[in-house]
Computed example of a mutant assay.
Amino acid sequence: MPILELSVVPVGTGSESFGDDVERAVAIIEQNGLNYQVTPTSTIVEGDIDKLFDVAQAIHLNEIQKNASRVVTTMKIDDRKDKDISLDSQVNRVKE
């Protein structure tokens, strides 16, 4: 299953804090029923590739609607076809 790393940085909001932005992003991810993991600098989400793009777009546009004068969104996608991967399998492999 594809894995998306997503970082959305709203600029011009009048605040240095991103906590509320992360909470809004996580709410969108949960509404779409996707498995995710929040890290200190990004959020990792797994799911169908089309759903991942839809969620990334929804999060990006939501930040624009919340009065950010600029939004910088960075995405990385790991889409492996030779074997199944997941958030848990990738983390567990490193821990082994």
Rank of each mutant, 00 (worst) to 15 (best):
E46S: 06
S42H: 09
T43D: 04
Q90P: 00
I28Y: 04
K81V: 01
D84W: 07
D78E: 09
G47R: 10
R80G: 02
L52D: 02
V22W: 09
L34D: 11
T73H: 05
P2K: 01
D21Q: 10
I29L: 03
S89P: 04
N32E: 12
I3C: 03
E46N: 04
S7W: 01
S69G: 05
T13H: 08
E5T: 07
V26I: 15
T39G: 11
S7D: 10
Q37K: 11
R24E: 12
S42L: 05
G12W: 05
F18T: 11
V38C: 04
K51M: 11
A56T: 07
S86F: 09
I64V: 15
Q31S: 14
D88I: 13
N32H: 14
D20Q: 12
D84N: 14
E63T: 01
A58S: 12
V72Y: 11
E23K: 14
D79Q: 04
T74M: 13
Y36G: 08
V71T: 05
T73V: 05
I49A: 03
E23S: 10
V38Q: 09
G19A: 15
G19L: 12
L52S: 04
E30V: 12
L52N: 01
L4T: 01
D50A: 13
V91M: 10
G14E: 00
D50P: 00
V9M: 12
E63G: 03
F18A: 08
A25E: 12
D20S: 14
H60K: 03
Q65E: 13
A68H: 08
E30G: 01
V9L: 15
Q57E: 14
A56W: 04
A58W: 01
V71F: 00
L6P: 01
E63P: 01
Q31W: 03
D88G: 13
D20A: 14
D54K: 13
M1N: 06
K76R: 15
E96I: 05
I28T: 08
I28F: 02
T39W: 00
S15N: 11
S15W: 00
S89M: 03
